[in-house]
Computed example of a mutant assay.
Amino acid sequence: MKLSRLFTRVLQRELQLAYRRRADLANPPLFFLIVVALFPLGVTPDLERLATMAAGVLWVAALLANLLSLDLLFRSDHEDGSLEQLLLASSPPTLIVLGKALAHWLVTGLPLTLMSPLLAMMLALSPAAMPLLMLSLALGTVTLSLVGGIGAALTVGLRQGGLLLTLLIMPLFVPVLIFGTAVVQAAGAGLPWSGQLALLAAMAVLALVSAPLATVAALRIAVEE
C-alpha cells in the first residue's frame, strides 16, 4: 500500500470515529466559548483592560480546550486491541500516528482557530491582531496535537490517565503558550512580531519531525507493560 494512501485511510478512519463521538467532539469548542465568554463577567467589563489581556485569555482557553480530547487519542485503539496491531504492522507506525494527530487537529485545533476572531471581538482585541491570532493558533494547536500525542501514548493504559497526562505534557505546552501570546500582543501593540512567529513555526516543524517518533516509542512502552 502506498504511504499516501495509508495516510489518507488513517485520516478518514479517525474522522469517522470522531464523528461518531459527537458529544466528545463538541466539548473543546464549547469549553473555549464558555471560558472566554465568562471572563469579562468574572474579571472586568472594561474594554481597555480586556484588550490587554485578550491574547493570554484566548491562548490559555485554547490550550485547556485542546487538553480535553487528548486522552481519547489512542484510548479506543487500546481498548479494542488494535493498538498492538498498529505497532506490529508492516506499515510505518509513525505515519499512522501522524494521521491520528492530524485528525485530532482537524476536529479540535481547527475549530478553535476558526472561532477565535469572534471571541477576540468579545475581548476587544485589536482588529490588526486578529489575522496573527488565527495564524498563531493554527501553528500552536498543530504543535499541541503532536506533542500531546506523546503524553496520550504514555498514559493510554491507565484508567484515570487524564490528570497524569496534563502533568506530563503541560511543561511542553508552556513555550507554545508564551510565544503564541507574544505574537498576538506584539501585533496588537504595533511592535515587531516576526521573531515570535518564526519561533512558533519552528516549534511546529520540530514537533512534526520528532513527536511521531517519540509517540511510537511511548506506545511500545505502554503496550509492553
Rank of each mutant, 00 (worst) to 15 (best):
Q185L: 13
P111Q: 14
F179Y: 15
M134Y: 09
A201H: 08
A120C: 07
L132K: 03
L206C: 13
L158M: 13
V183C: 08
L119M: 06
S126G: 10
V183H: 01
A187G: 10
M134E: 12
A214V: 07
V176R: 01
A202W: 14
V156M: 03
S194G: 14
L110H: 10
W193L: 13
V205G: 07
T215S: 10
P127H: 10
P127W: 10
V156N: 03
L132H: 02
G161D: 04
L132M: 12
A211I: 02
A124I: 04
I178N: 06
T141N: 13
V147W: 05
A201N: 11
P192G: 06
L206W: 11
S194E: 15
G157L: 08
A217I: 11
F179W: 13
V209Y: 02
A218Y: 00
M121Q: 15
V205Q: 10
L137E: 09
L172P: 11
A214S: 15
S136V: 03
L154G: 00
G188I: 01
L163F: 15
L146G: 08
T141G: 04
T113A: 11
L135K: 07
A120R: 05
M115A: 02
L123H: 04
L123R: 06
M115Q: 03
M121N: 14
I178C: 08
L132W: 12
V156K: 01
L146D: 03
P131H: 09
L208Y: 07
T215M: 07
R159H: 07
Q185R: 06
W193N: 09
V216Q: 05
L137Q: 05
P131V: 06
P131Q: 12
I169P: 05
M121R: 15
L199T: 09
T155P: 02
L219P: 03
S145C: 09
V147D: 05
T113F: 09
L112P: 01
S116P: 01
T155F: 08
L206P: 03
G161L: 02
A120V: 02
V147L: 14
L137K: 02
G151I: 00
V176I: 12
V142G: 11
P127R: 09
A187T: 01
L172E: 07
L119W: 01
P131K: 02
L135I: 13
L163E: 08
G195V: 14
Q160R: 15
L165S: 00
P111Y: 12
R159K: 14
V209T: 06
I169Q: 13
